[in-house]
């Protein structure tokens, strides 16, 4: 009786856990007992776990992750520093919107990663090129979300602040910024995804270290368990970042959750 109640209450996590555990178990068992494993073509969870332990505890993957995240942080900080002011300006000044919107929309809609080989040729292999790539990809969600956030600001609140003698500065810090914040957090989540793409592509095209480079090198040398370990490592990082942002979004603006396509 108790077990049934527990199941009904926690049905989602239980089913999720069962399906993930089941998949890994089946993967392991099939390759151990049914099909002979070709190590140049596939691998199994137990080998991945060993590789993961070696690579992560040995510190190699951490080193790669730190290299990658340094470029990520530089590009991302610049994207915030440029994107939010531009977005706020576009939302607040009509002429700025008219002037910038078509240009920026065109850039946002086009696959800017296509510039990756050129950026690497111009800026060289390493930190700078990757940061530029991350910046280029991550700046647009900040611009357009800050823009939409300012646009959604309640006119009534602005008028109230104005009629009580508030200055331009008060408008920005007391009304516009707080109501824009949830939008910016949502933009951050999208920007994280795009920034990660930038890092990985940059390191695939040309790099000597970093997590994307590690994955492609393991692939080139047929070290499949190590490669899966690196992919899972990156996956965990990405999930932590994205889901963290989603939680933050839910805490800042619970009424907006689920309104927007992922």
């Amino acid at each position: 009786m108790g077990a049934k109640r527990i199941y009904q209450e926690y049905q989602r996590p239980i089913l999720g856990l069962v399906s993930v555990a089941g998949l890994f178990l089946a993967w392991e068992l099939v390759l151990t007992y049914l099909v002979p494993l070709n190590p140049f073509f596939f691998t199994k969870p137990s080998l991945i776990a060993t590789a993961f332990q070696e690579q992560v505890l040995g510190g190699r993957l951490w080193h790669d992750l730190i290299i990658s995240s340094r470029a990520f942080l530089w590009g991302f900080s610049c994207a915030i520093a440029v994107g939010i002011p531009v977005g706020v300006l576009m939302g607040w000044r009509r002429r700025a919107e008219y002037t910038l919107d078509p240009f920026l929309t065109a850039l946002y809609a086009s696959p800017l990663v296509a510039l990756a080989p050129l950026i690497i040729v111009v800026f060289g292999v390493g930190l700078l090129a990757k940061s530029v790539l991350v910046f280029l990809l991550a700046v647009f969600p900040f611009i357009f979300n800050a823009f939409a956030g300012v646009r959604s600001t309640d006119r009534l609140l602005i008028n109230v602040v104005k009629s009580f003698g508030g200055k331009e500065k008060d408008l920005y810090f007391k009304v516009i910024l707080p109501s824009t914040l949830p939008y910016i957090v949502a933009g951050t989540r999208i920007a994280i995804g795009r920034g990660l793409v930038g890092i990985i592509v940059g390191e695939f095209v040309a790099a000597s270290e970093g997590i994307g480079f590690a994955i492609s090198r393991f692939g080139d040398t047929y070290q499949l368990p190590e490669m899966f370990a690196a992919i899972f490592f990156l996956m965990i990082t990405a999930i932590v970042l994205t889901e963290g942002m989603r939680k933050l979004e839910a805490a800042l603006a619970p009424w907006r959750v689920g309104q927007e396509a992922r």
Binding site: I200, F204, G212, I215, S216, Y222, I231, L234, I239
Partner: peptide, 16 residues
């Protein structure tokens, strides 16, 4: 999990 991860990380694997 797959939606959070940039899917291009699977590219070397798919080429293999």
């Amino acid at each position: 999990a797959l939606n959070a991860t940039p899917r291009i990380v699977f590219l070397p694997l798919l080429i293999l």
